[in-house]
Design a protein around this nucleic acid. Structure first.
Lengths: 226, 226
DNA sequence: CTCCTTGATGTTGAATCCAATACAGCAACA
DNA sequence: TGTTGCTGTATTGGATTCAACATCAAGGAG
């Protein structure tokens, strides 16, 4: 979401749900960094509300894993350790292939074309932010057709918690690694087109696993973060 | 948690976290049924607090999947459809074996003995509530040693969302099905003792899958709920 | 010089009060 | 008779106000 879009929304009606949404976007966008303290008063002022709905928004984002609350003390943007990050990736490795399986039968030709186009765009871009956006759109886009309730939310949450670490990690990708990533994206589209759920699951699990192992080999990623 | 324990806690200091905890326990204990409306004023009175911390507790439980909030309208105890329930079980089938794998290397002899004892107790009991309590203690107990943060919470949440359905489903188990469940529990302890992660994963996944398929064969479970 | 106590200050947490919204019941009309 | 519009009431949502707690700095005792 762009900053202009955020500002637009501020003008409209107030609600803790709105604040949660905007604050989530702001955190994912990198406006607040992991470990940074969130003062109720500041956030309230920023969104033109009182502290009560802000506290409710904090509770929502806490459950999303984006904010860490400590009673009588304060709120911080969540900060994952290397092991926690690894844990999230291991979980994603198990869960996302299942979600893709749910989505598979509902992905039509046009949808697959769109995914392929995203993969191609990703290959052409140089910007890190652009890459992150496209990658997110590609993967979450491939799950979009799934008619699930809990599972979809769960996966989105896992993505959100690692957003900052994806950004830092992307900076460390060498040419070879990048090439493999792109190859896997195209293979994934192929399996999706063929409607081969087992194959798609295998490729996706491998894709996530590769990222996880890459992350484990580059613990310095965590030094790039504040 | 017993009702007495709940009442004890009411007397102590107030906080939205405390209310969330007590309300969670009350819902899981069956005091509030799926689909039942939760009025802020009622809950506030019950726990001797004002509506503000209750609203925060609602937000927490919403993220837990126990409460469903509709803006400007109200809060209800979450009610899962058959497909949603199936979805949760499919997710558990993927995720819990991973958590068990995390726990496995930290389970010592004494811990395994305790699990075996729980499995044996479960075999001896006739009461549904007792069975549910022991089953929960057995499985979550087997994960207890895992030094995880997100994954453990995630699994606990999945268990919570299906608590009412587990209760209803247990009532429908015939003698044969019950026997298979007990067998699998003992096989699981065996694999845990042997430290065989692959085998333990396989058994646990099958165990959860069997329950899921049983649930799918007995859609009348959902008629037992209000 | 170090460690503990003690107060000042800022921040969080909760209660009360007020506004806005949804809902039920009733009435008027086609 | 069924539908639509209106009004009163119950309930939720948010702002303000006040209390409780944590943090930090300064000062005093060992």
């Amino acid at each position: 979401m762009t900053n202009a879009a955020i500002t637009d929304l501020v003008a409209h009606g107030n609600s803790s749900a709105r604040i949660a949404e905007l604050l989530r976007a702001a955190i994912l966008h990198g406006e607040y960094q992991p470990g940074q303290r969130l003062r109720q008063e500041d956030v309230a002022q920023r969104f033109g509300a009182s502290r009560v709905p802000v506290r409710e928004a904090f509770r929502t984002l806490e459950a999303d894993g984006l904010v860490t609350l400590v009673a009588n003390t304060g709120a911080w943007v969540s900060r994952l350790s290397l092991t926690e990050c690894d844990e999230v990736y291991q979980t994603r490795e198990r869960v996302e292939p299942l979600l893709l399986r749910y989505a598979l039968p509902h992905i039509d030709e046009a949808h697959a074309d769109r995914l392929e186009e995203l993969a191609a765009q990703m290959q052409r871009t140089d910007g890190v932010e652009e890459f992150l956006r496209l990658d997110r759109e590609f993967h979450l886009g491939s799950y979009e057709a799934a008619e699930t309730t809990v599972l979809g939310d769960l996966v989105r949450r896992l993505w959100n918690t690692t957003q900052h670490y994806r950004r830092a990690f992307t900076l460390l990708l060498d040419e070879h690694a990048t090439r493999v990533v792109h190859d896997e994206h195209h293979m994934l589209v192929g399996a999706i087109r063929a409607g081969d759920a087992d194959d798609a699951e295998r490729i996706l699990a491998g894709h996530i696993r590769r990222t996880r192992l890459g992350l484990a080999r580059h613990p310095e990623v965590f030094d790039l973060l504040p």
